[in-house]
């Protein structure tokens, strides 16, 4: 789960980099060129099923581990736990479910249209991600849901990245503080970076 998660962490940065091109004032040229590159480059084409596999493995292991963890305490405590822990760490399953719902909706809105599983809306060509994004972000309800999805992804990542290092055996008296800070910085960059885009469209249009 940790390994697959770390792989997804790299993917998110690439995705964010491309999405931020939406903010360029060039009528979507840079964004469309990047989307076209991702859709045609041979290496990326090979990596796409690997990425789906990564998501699938991460979710499957997450579910398996969560069910096993629940089963390990068949009788629960009567008093709620007051142990001092990070609340984000205790709700990884819940934040993961919200991110999963967001991911499915996101795939329906973009990927399924691209591969032809879902019909594109009238007037938008199925490979034209730029105008599809503009149309979706014009809807304030969609933009709000998009931002909520990324807020929870941020919560998930904030704990996940440093936890993945710990699970892989990396805990060092000198560097663990930096890993934890890096985990928080990364989650703020990813969640904030994706959330800026609908905000920008809301303000600028």
């Amino acid at each position: 789960m940790a390994l697959a998660g770390l792989f997804l962490v790299v993917f998110l940065l690439v995705h964010l980099g491309i999405n931020l091109l939406l903010l360029a004032n060039d009528d979507g040229q840079a964004f469309s060129a990047a989307a076209n590159f991702m859709g045609t480059n041979a290496v990326i084409r090979v990596m796409e099923p690997v990425l789906f596999g990564g998501f699938l493995l991460h979710m499957l292991f997450g579910l398996l581990v969560s069910f096993r963890n629940r089963a390990s305490r068949p009788v629960r405590y009567q008093h709620k736990s007051l142990s001092e822990t990070s609340p984000l760490s205790k709700y990884m399953f819940h934040s993961g479910i919200i991110v999963f719902i967001f991911l499915v909706l996101h795939l329906i809105d973009f990927y399924f249209i691209k591969v032809g599983l879902v019909a594109p809306p009238a007037g938008v060509e199925r490979h034209d991600f730029y105008h599809r994004s503009l149309a979706l972000f014009a809807d304030k309800g969609y933009s709000a849901a998009y931002m909520v999805g990324f807020l929870f992804l941020g919560f998930h990542l904030n704990h996940a990245v440093q936890a993945a290092f710990q699970t892989m055996g990396f805990n060092h008296s000198k560097y663990t503080g930096a890993v934890k800070a890096g985990s928080t910085i990364y989650s703020v960059i990813v969640a904030g970076g994706f959330m800026i885009i609908p905000l920008w469209f809301m303000i600028s249009r």
Partner: peptide
């Protein structure tokens, strides 16, 4: 026993303050 999900409740509650390191 369950699996570790790195909540570190164990370290916070250990009477001997054993580290999650």
């Amino acid at each position: 026993f369950g699996n570790c999900s790195n909540t570190y409740a164990c370290e916070a509650e250990c009477p001997k303050e054993i580290s999650v390191a």
